[in-house]
C-alpha cells in the first residue's frame, strides 16, 4: 500500500464531517428525527404518513446544497467534484445504484444512518453494518481494480 499524499485532505474532510455531524445533531435536537438518507428516501417511496413534509424538506436541502455551494465558493463548484472521473460507465452506475438501494433498505441504513447517527449513539447494530459495508467496499474496489483489471 502506498499513501496518496497529493490528494490527502484531512482538514477539509474533518471540517465537512463536522458539518455533517452538526446537521444530524440539529435534526435530532430540534425535530427528534434521524438523518438517515436511505431511510428518508425509502419511507418517502412508501405509504404517506406524518413524516412526509420534513423528509421531503431534508432532501430538498441536500438537492439545493451544490447550488448554494457554487454561489458561496469563489471558484464555484467544479462538476468533477460530484461525478466519477472519466467517461461515465452507465452499467456500473445502474448496477451500483440497484445494489445500494436494495442493500440499504434491507440493512435499514447507509453511511449516514448507520455510519454517522448509529455510531454517534453507540449502536452495536450500526457498528456491525459499518464494518460490513466498509469491508465489502474495500473488497469490491480491490477486485475491480487489481484482480479483474480496470
Amino acid at each position: 500500500m502506498t499513501i496518496d499524499w497529493t490528494h490527502f485532505s484531512p482538514w477539509s474532510a474533518l471540517a465537512g464531517g463536522a458539518l455533517i455531524g452538526l446537521a444530524a445533531s440539529l435534526l435530532l435536537l430540534a425535530n427528534g428525527r434521524v438523518a438517515g438518507v436511505s431511510s428518508i428516501i425509502g419511507e418517502l417511496l412508501g405509504p404517506a404518513d406524518g413524516n412526509r413534509r420534513w423528509q421531503a424538506s431534508f432532501l430538498a436541502g441536500l438537492i439545493l446544497a451544490p447550488t448554494l455551494w457554487a454561489g458561496l465558493a469563489p471558484n464555484g463548484l467544479p462538476a468533477s467534484d460530484l461525478v466519477p472521473t472519466g467517461p461515465a460507465d452507465w452499467s456500473v452506475l445502474i448496477i451500483g445504484g440497484l445494489l445500494v438501494g436494495f442493500g440499504t433498505r434491507l440493512a435499514n441504513g447507509c453511511t449516514s444512518g448507520h455510519g454517522v447517527c448509529g455510531l454517534a449513539r453507540l449502536s452495536p447494530r450500526s457498528l456491525i453494518a459499518v464494518l460490513v459495508f466498509m469491508a465489502a467496499g474495500f473488497a469490491t474496489v480491490f477486485l475491480a481494480r487489481h484482480v479483474l483489471g480496470n
Partner: peptide, 14 residues
C-alpha cells in the same frame, strides 16, 4: 439540516 448536511458532503470530499 439537509442543506448543512449537503454542504458537509461537498466540503469533505464525500
Amino acid at each position: 439540516s439537509g442543506l448543512i448536511f449537503g454542504l458537509g458532503l461537498i466540503t469533505s470530499g464525500m
